[in-house]
Nucleic acid binder design. Structure first.
Lengths: 259, 259
DNA sequence: TTTCATTTATTAAAATTTAATAAATGAAGG
DNA sequence: CCTTCATTTATTAAATTTTAATAAATGAAA
């Protein structure tokens, strides 16, 4: 939502083209050179930071809604996206004083009625995504004054049940690391063993063995060695590796066991 | 729902105490002595078998709804229950001719109107459960004429998107096997290494190493040896083992890595 | 009473994983 | 311009773990 008229339409008649009581929230993790961050949104009318999210449209599936929201917030389509949990505790819509009605009226001229469709109890389907930070373009909209990356260990208190969502997203992502390949959009097409090890270390939050871990990826036939070396200055030149497309894609749908 | 008046109330005024558009479906896996089965329900008014499920009440959370439904269908409370995926494709409510309107009228005297709340698009949160078959009491109700265990490799075509649900439930359960302890309600308090190996083999669908696999459980401190042996007739007596409660409970919430 | 089938437990072989060492590379300093 | 040095990758050796093979136990059946 970028214009005031779009906003007004959404608040007064949004229930006509959105599925009532059904939202999506996305934990978008961003990786770049050894740092893991999370994309958060600050609304002008909510005093706490939030996960990017929104209502599901009547003409789209859950996956499509999640893809739309992440694509809009990051500028990147086709990123690694995965449903991790659905949140439906009663009372989870309660903002606990975080919503500023006056500010909302000031910005929109709309008085929020008790029976507005947005006050209805909602269920939110949580998705997480992993993207490369340099390729992403954090995008704000009418309400969100800010849209920023936060290092994973410096995430502020979030609105609603979004704290729990982040905790669960990270937990699910770290389990998925053992069962789905990752890295295709996070590393260059040619990468060194040290780079992919660092990626996994940052995502998992654990130290990995420098020789043993890459060997597992090779044993799974997920990556393979190239006849090319990188020049990294005053050090021994490491060999380049690449992902094996077919194996990678197959593992994405069928799963694997990486330990 | 057991009586006709309950049914009538649900169909005409159910939206008053249920959350509209929000259902739960449960893949209840049953284990007993090396066989894995799935609990299915056959409704009098739907021509195909279904997963047990139902609408979420306005006064309960998702987990509570899932616990209520599984407890009602199996007679067992407090079983291993886990959310695995939420299904919200548009058109997933379409029964594809599986719903028999005439039979429904015959049984209830209710004419289904186009605008009945049950015709609204729904999102279903999928849970799976694992229970011991001998302790379970499959229970039918007003509509479900039958409620039966089906061996996992002999599951018939199901109604709605329940085929996909079962596939996803099994997939999720088999991944969870690597990260959460299982067996406390499926084995006797004292069990042999062969028994727990068989349990894992049946649940995972894979052959496991007879000495190595149990050793991993011991190394994780999940099980420990007792000073007692089982008499199994004309064979060498195996040693009994038990679960370590504290480790087991901790792993249930924090996760583990079992490979 | 002895043999036998079947199962668990122990031991030895194989494979894998970890740690230690060697080799490579170019910057920095004499 | 040559030597030293810090740092990184690659290889080799040690340690550990996993697999396979063998031994021991048990009671039914011959």
């Amino acid at each position: 939502m970028e214009t005031l008229s779009e906003v007004k339409h959404f608040f007064t008649e949004g229930y006509l083209d959105h599925r009532p009581g059904l939202t999506i929230d996305c934990a978008i993790f961003g990786y770049h050179e050894g740092v893991l961050k999370l994309l958060l949104v600050k609304s002008k009318v909510i005093t706490k930071w939030c996960l990017p999210g929104g209502f599901v449209r009547k003409d789209e599936n859950l996956d499509e809604a999640a893809a739309r929201i992440t694509a809009w917030r990051t500028g990147i389509g086709n990123l690694f996206l995965k449903q991790f949990k659905t949140f439906g505790d009663i009372g989870r819509n309660d903002h606990g004083g975080a919503f500023d009605e006056n500010k909302f009226y000031e910005l929109t001229g709309i008085k929020f009625e008790e029976d507005n469709w947005l006050y209805d109890e909602t269920v939110s389907v949580g998705f997480y995504a992993i993207t490369d930070i340099v390729n992403a373009q954090p995008t704000a909209d009418f309400f969100s004054s800010e849209c920023e990356w936060f290092p994973i260990d410096k995430i502020p208190n979030l609105a609603f049940d979004h704290d729990e969502m982040v905790r669960e997203a990270l937990f699910a992502m770290r389990i998925d690391l053992y069962h789905f390949p990752i890295g295709k959009n996070l590393l260059q097409p040619k990468f060194t063993l040290k780079e992919i090890k660092l990626l996994y270390e940052v995502l998992s939050g654990k130290k990995l063995n420098p020789t043993n871990f890459p060997n597992k990826l090779i044993a799974l036939d997920l990556i393979s060695r190239l006849d090319e070396k990188r020049n990294i200055g005053a050090h021994r030149s490491p060999t380049y590796y690449k992902f094996n497309e077919e194996v990678y894609e197959k593992a994405l749908t069928e799963g694997l066991v990486l330990v």
